[in-house]
Nucleic acid binder design. Structure first.
Lengths: 340, 340
DNA sequence: GACTGGCACTCGCCGATCAGGAGTGCCAAC
DNA sequence: GTTGGCACTCCTGATCGGCGAGTGCCAGTC
């Protein structure tokens, strides 16, 4: 059974009204608010079909209809009209992201901007180390047996780790190590570094071998294994809009999920090029987020992708608006990073 | 009118029961659960006095009594017995904080530990820059006109900023600048640096003057003005315990406050030596937190204070337990930092 | 065959009503 | 100063009925 155009119109109208009012929408209200050109009775027939197909449901007999996850999905895939950002929103983005002072600042501003524009919870992943290259490695002597390793990536990210050396180490040695390490690794993509690091150890003069090995261990941890992605969150308070009606009455599971970086990275970090991904309710693998929706996309300078960002909110959200905003912010952020 | 010992006992019993059960406590239940040695009628008389004095109140006529903010205050100041941590808790702290990998890791673990032990929202401030000394300043050339300034503080904190130079700058110049800057600033407390930075510019050879001035500007921003404190949060989901009964029904204002770093710093960061500060309900200057309580203290290696940490929860919280935990965690954290 | 108006029916919501019970305040007695 | 008794308050939860929104179905129309 295929749905004709009018039934789709009805579904669209239901989604739009429900998102706007937060109340189940009935046939009469529908024809009043939208120019459907048919009577409530006809709309009721259409609704019955839509319900049979699983796109809408009634909370109770004789209440209005509410979209199901499948209904939202159909809406997002086929029915929603792309919303252009208002000039005011564009200006807000530009103003908000102007003249950042460093990467932290950029991410911070972006995530707050996103939260503010969408009125949802916003998440921004820091530029992924896995997709970055090494710009420079710095070794700073801290004590006779300790050196701080500072890695600066081309994306502006800076990671540091303390290295405990096996024995005392002279200033000259540090200089030499720094030279060697940079010579070999600078400009390389982080993902490609492990064999190079190994080569560094192998090529090393025997008397420096143990020191270098020690450094190599930490290097690998910093560059690859613990290339633990970071992210930033904002707008948690937006979860309380809609007065406990969203999220089936309890924020608990959602707040819990938001505390797990691993979970958020799964949501935001897995991005394919130039796609905006929308996960609706049950489509989320995370149980705690079965009553939430996530809109995410990748960002990066000039078409590349070096990280993800997105928003999370109730399934009852303004998908077209949020998709548009997420995309726009990602593009602006990419442009900003391209300038650096 | 002074309160005799039994009235204080009654208040203590009310607070303890109310915190435990979340329900207004009546005179009969009180004498049943506590060995007060008097009849309910006597307790009622005492309660009437306590209410007159503003330490407890009735939500409605003929419901039990509930402590007021003033009641909690009296309880905290004079009535609560110090709770010792259980061996299990001590072990948990030690296990949790063992073998951290860097400062981020330390703070991260601490805040989660605190949230877990107290089952409240936990906040940990990063070691304050204002109370740190410069260990090392590093200048890393990024392009011909850009240098990345990396400051490593003795607390392990690392801050970085990009410096846009007025003109191209040679590698030798960078080396020279680095030497000079470190010579002058390394080991200095950040708070003392502004005049030294100025001196650096003044002492500079004229041909390098403009470069140094530019660097100095960013240095000052990084070291002092923007010595913006950082902090980390955990356990937000704990706010939902007590099913929306706490926080007069709406998490909204609390979540909003938690998003404002400035607010949190006010709560956590203003610490006097070796004091545990308890702010109860209305004692908070922040309007959004009028229905919350905050227990905070300072931490640092060997008696010094380099940052604050604490927990935030409903006024109806286990003050003795939370105070004990906050103190213990702060002490362990201080010890940990002392080892570095 | 699709659409429409009419109509009976369902059922959640809201307010009123009511009994039960917990808890109080007061008072007289010890 | 303490206690038992007692009347009173008033919240809680359950019950009930009317209202109304909204539906499903059916017969009639184009």
């Amino acid at each position: 059974m295929s749905l004709d155009d009018r039934k789709l119109d009805v579904l669209r109208a239901i989604v739009e009204d429900y998102v706007a009012t937060q109340e189940p929408v009935g046939s009469k209200a529908l024809v009043e608010r939208h120019q459907l050109g048919v009577s409530p009775a006809t709309v009721r027939n259409d609704m019955a079909v839509l319900e049979e197909e699983g796109y809408i449901r009634q909370p109770h007999t004789s209440a209005g209809r509410v979209p199901t996850d499948a209904g939202y999905r159909l809406f997002v895939d086929r029915l929603s009209r792309i919303k252009a950002l208002s000039p005011a929103e564009r200006r807000a983005i530009e103003r908000f992201l102007a003249n950042p002072v460093d990467l932290d600042d950029v991410v911070h501003r972006t995530v707050r901007l996103l939260a503010q524009l969408t009125r949802q919870v916003a998440v921004v992943q820091y530029p992924s180390l896995a997709r970055s290259s090494v710009r420079h490695l710095e070794l700073v002597p801290i004590s006779t047996t300790r050196v701080m390793l500072v890695m600066i990536a081309d994306t502006g990210r800076v990671e540091q780790r303390l290295v405990e050396m096996p024995g005392p180490i002279a200033a000259d040695d540090v200089t030499e190590l720094r030279r060697k390490v940079n010579e070999k690794l600078a400009g390389q993509r982080l993902a490609d570094t492990p064999p190079l690091v190994q080569a560094l150890v192998d090529d090393c003069a025997p008397e420096r071998r143990s020191t270098m090995a020690c450094l190599a261990t930490v290097l690998l941890e910093t560059l690859v294994e613990r290339s633990e992605e970071r992210l930033m969150l904002a707008g948690t308070a937006n979860l309380t809009r809609g007065g406990m009606l969203d999220f089936q009455g309890s924020l608990r599971p959602v707040l819990e999920a938001l505390e797990e970086e691993v979970i958020l990275l799964k949501l935001i970090g897995e991005v394919e090029p130039s796609t905006t991904r929308v996960r609706i309710g049950d489509e989320n693998e995370i149980d705690n987020l079965r009553s939430a929706s996530v809109v995410s996309t990748g960002y990066g300078p000039g078409g590349t992708i070096i990280g993800g960002l997105g928003v999370l909110g109730p399934t009852r959200m303004d998908y077209p608006g949020n998709i548009a905003t997420v995309r726009a912010v990602a593009r602006y952020l990419g442009d900003l990073l391209a300038q650096n």
